[in-house]
Structures are given as structure tokens and as C-alpha cells.
Amino acid sequence: MTTMEYIKTHLDFISTTYKIPEYIKKSILESIFVDGIGMVCRPPDYLDIIRSLQKFEKTEPDIYPAIINYCTEKNLEEVELYKKAGIARASFSKIRSMSKTGYNPSKATVLRLCLALELTIQQTQGMLETLGYHLSDASIKDKIISWCIENKIYDINTIASVLNEVTGDYYIY
């Protein structure tokens, strides 16, 4: 078996096992060549990255366990929470099962939950970051929400009114 056949065989196995898209597999094969003395020359990253995939399990982000913990801490029932946050029962149900379904609530929805739970700025950032969001210093809307949280202003309608007055957008609705 030649060096290139060996590489293709193992790459086929790895790409099937880890469901690597065909375009990535093709890119890897195009980056590999065998020089005149049988040495494989390639950028070092590709195969190393593929081997590293073994370390990762596919997990969906999930804020529901944190929501339950905060509800318990604050003696708040789920129904009270989603009503206070202005979230429909069906939407909250999606959040409840998000680890199984892959549902990802909007940033505004997460912010409403955090406000309803009266979380600190650090707790709010933690919830947002779990889903790939954050409160940015570059956004006037995010600065207003951060300021409100830091000053313990959690009323969603009040915050929405301030946001509308300053930016012309309700943002958290």
C-alpha cells in the first residue's frame, strides 16, 4: 500500500466515523502530497484537528438547569417565571427541552428570563454566554440593560420603555 492509499483509507474511516463534510475531506486530500522519497508533506493542522475530534462530544447548550436552580433559590415556580418574563408557555416548553431539540431562544428571551429572575450582571452574562450571546459595551441597548441590572431595575416594561425612548426600539420584546 502506498503512503497516499494509506492516508486515504484512514481519512475515509475518520471522516465516516466523525461525519466530516466531503468538502473538508477533499481540502485535506488536496493539501497532502507525497514527495519523491515517499515523505508526506501537509500543513500540520488538518489531520491533527481531525484526530482531536475524538475528544469532543456533540452537546447542545442548555440553560434550563440554571433556570431551575435560580427558581429554587428565589422560591419561584416555573409558571410564575414565564408569566413574569412575558414568555408564552409554548416557548418556555421549548426551553425546557432545548438539550434534546437543539432549540436556541433569542437573546431577548434570555434577557427577559434573567430580568424576571432578578439575576446579577455576572449571572446574566453567564446565561447569555451559554447560548453564545453577551451584553456588549459596543451596543447602547446592551449598555442600558446592563445599567438597569446593576442598579436592580428588573421591570421589563420599564426597561423596554427606556430602550424605546433612547433607541426607538423595544429590543427585549
Rank of each mutant, 00 (worst) to 15 (best):
M1H: 08
T2R: 03
T3K: 14
T3I: 13
M4R: 05
M4A: 03
M4N: 05
K8N: 15
T9P: 10
L11R: 07
D12P: 11
D12N: 14
F13A: 10
F13D: 12
T16G: 09
T16N: 12
T16Y: 07
T17E: 11
K19A: 08
K19M: 03
I20V: 13
I20L: 12
Y23W: 10
I24W: 13
K25P: 10
K25N: 00
K25L: 08
S27T: 14
E30H: 06
E30L: 15
V34A: 08
D35G: 06
D35A: 14
G36V: 07
G38Y: 00
G38A: 03
M39R: 14
V40P: 03
R42L: 15
P43L: 15
Y46W: 08
I50N: 05
R51Y: 12
K55C: 08
K55Y: 05
E60H: 02
I63Q: 02
P65W: 00
C71N: 02
C71E: 08
N75Q: 12
N75V: 10
E78Y: 14
E78W: 13
Y82T: 06
K83S: 05
K83L: 08
A85R: 02
G86F: 00
I87S: 01
I87E: 03
R96S: 01
S97L: 13
S97G: 05
M98K: 01
K100R: 15
T101G: 12
T101V: 07
T101S: 10
G102Q: 05
Y103N: 15
N104Q: 13
N104H: 11
P105Y: 15
S106M: 08
A108E: 04
T109Y: 02
V110G: 05
L111E: 01
L111Q: 04
L113V: 10
L113H: 02
C114I: 12
A116S: 10
L117T: 15
E118K: 10
E118S: 12
E118C: 06
E118G: 07
I121M: 11
I121D: 03
Q123F: 02
T124P: 07
M127A: 12
E129A: 11
E129V: 11
T130Q: 09
L131M: 10
Y133S: 07
L135K: 03
L135M: 00
A138D: 13
K141M: 14
D142I: 00
K143G: 02
S146I: 05
W147Y: 08
I149S: 04
E150K: 11
N151Q: 07
I153S: 02
N157Y: 02
V162I: 14
L163C: 08
V166I: 04
G168T: 05
D169Y: 13
D169A: 04
I172A: 01
I172P: 00
Y173E: 07
